[in-house]
Design a protein around this nucleic acid. Structure first.
Lengths: 107, 107
DNA sequence: ATTTTACATAGATAGTTATCTATATAAAGG
DNA sequence: CCTTTATATAGATAACTATCTATGTAAAAT
C-alpha cells in the first residue's frame, strides 16, 4: 500500500460515492442481477451500468453472464486489505437491506 | 456506519485524492507546519491550503496555530473506525517519508 | 423472423473539484 | 509604521463525474 498513492486513491475514489456504497451493501447478501439491484435506486439503468463498471474496474465487484442476465457479486478473493475492510465496514450488520429475504442469502 | 451512505461517502471522498493520502503519510511522522508539508509537493500554497481544509472538515486532521505558523497533525482521537483504518493503511511502514529524520518523530 | 427483454454504450449536460493567480490577513521584525 | 512572512480566501478554469436520453446488442420468446 505504502506510497502507492495514485492506485490506492483510485480504489478509494470508487468507494467514495453513496450509491456505490449502497450497491456493496446490497451485494453483501449475495449475488444479484442488475435489474434486481436497480430496484433499490431512483436512477436509470444506464447510471447503474456506469456504477457497476467503476466497481468492476477496481476489482471490487465481479460479473457472471447467464443468458440475458448479468449477475454481480462482491469479489472478496481479488480484494486487497483496503477493499476488504471497507466492504466489511459497510456491510457489518445482521440486518439485510434486501426486502426479499427468500431470494437472498442473508445471514 | 450501516446505511449512512452519504456521510461515509464524504469521509471516503476526502481520502480519495493521492495528494491527501500523501499528506496523511507525511503527518504520520508527527505534527508539521504547512510550509514543511508543502515542500513534498509541486503544487502551490493555496492548493495545499485547500487540501488541509478538506481533511480538517472530515476530522482527519487538526490544526494548532502558533504565531505565523499553522501546525497540522492527524486527529486519531476524533476518528471513527473507517478513518483510523485508512490512516493506518497509508502509514503502515517503518520507513518514514520525511527526509529530515532529526526533525520528525519517525519510529 | 419479429418482438421483447436485459444490459451496455454514446453523447450531452450540470455539478463538483484540483489547480492556478491575485489578494487579504495577521503576526513578527526592523 | 512599514516590511516580511505564513497562511487563508476569492475567483477563474480545466478536468472529471453522475446523471440523463437515445441507441446498440444479443439472447429469449412468440
Amino acid at each position: 500500500m505504502k506510497r502507492n498513492y495514485d492506485e490506492n486513491a483510485k480504489i478509494i475514489k470508487a468507494l467514495s460515492d453513496p450509491s456505490r456504497l449502497k450497491i456493496i451493501d446490497i451485494l453483501s447478501c449475495g449475488e444479484k442481477c442488475a435489474c434486481d439491484i436497480l430496484q433499490y435506486f431512483d436512477f436509470t439503468q444506464p447510471t447503474l451500468s456506469h456504477h457497476m463498471k467503476v466497481l468492476m474496474e477496481c476489482g471490487i465487484v465481479e460479473c457472471r453472464k447467464e443468458g440475458l442476465w448479468s449477475y454481480y457479486s462482491l469479489n472478496s478473493s481479488n480484494c486487497n486489505k483496503l477493499i476488504l475492510f471497507l466492504m466489511n465496514l459497510v456491510t457489518d450488520t445482521d440486518e439485510c437491506i434486501c426486502k426479499d429475504k427468500a431470494k437472498c442469502e442473508c445471514k
